[in-house]
Design a protein around this nucleic acid. Structure first.
Lengths: 113, 113
DNA sequence: CGGCATCCTTCTAGATACTG
DNA sequence: CAGTATCTAGAAGGATGCCG
């Protein structure tokens, strides 16, 4: 990892490293207060590729934001949920959602003119 | 752009598209309430590459979050500042900074054990 | 169902050199 | 000072096929 000096020191830089990936915000949003299986996430995030979802989930798991629970059975059952530090991210998501809506309105107004 | 259907519709997906780039969050943070010249930003974001900074700024400008003001003079002077919709992003940054600090503490505790 | 291995393509940061 | 043009290395998303 480049700029290791900033990671773990600057809050913004650290956050940016966590939020890499096209789907990480959406995953954290859908997992808020929910326990979801792999297939459920895949459907919610369509048209995400299966391999991509796996990689994103592994990344978030390594960073400690989500938890992966495997039930050894046939058919397999794997459940994903937020960890403590993952749940603490919720205020960011809330503000982000508000801003996203503001921005979408901004886009609409821009297209009118 | 892939998934154009989600861009401009889903707040999270839209936000993710805006926040691409390793430096966008930091740039928005430093421009909060400030008007900065290219060189000032470059110093604040060291060790960012000059070309990288240019690209990030162009991206944010195209998305309408920052404004670029050029003074035609020698030596050149270019100032960057937040637009209205860019300033509206501040609540997100505030929550993100809080979470970043929480996460950094989480990392420190994890390394102790 | 929930993966993994493999391969491919695109995207991105960054280095370097040059310009008005 | 504030870029542009060009190139490279690497990462990321994604398609496909196979497996317990």
């Amino acid at each position: 990892m480049k700029n290791k000096n900033l990671f773990g020191t600057c809050p913004y830089f650290t956050a940016q490293k966590i939020l890499v990936g096209k789907w990480s915000l959406l995953i954290l949003h859908y997992l808020d207060g929910e326990v979801l299986r792999f297939k459920q996430l895949e459907r919610l995030l369509a048209p995400i590729a299966q391999t991509t979802l796996t990689k994103q989930l592994r990344g978030l798991e390594e960073h400690g934001l989500i938890e992966r629970k495997v039930y050894t059975q046939i058919p397999p059952r794997v459940e994903y949920s937020l960890t403590q530090v993952g749940r603490e991210f919720k205020p960011v998501l809330e503000k982000l959602e508000l801003w996203g809506e503001i921005y979408i309105k901004y886009l609409e107004n821009k297209n009118k003119t």
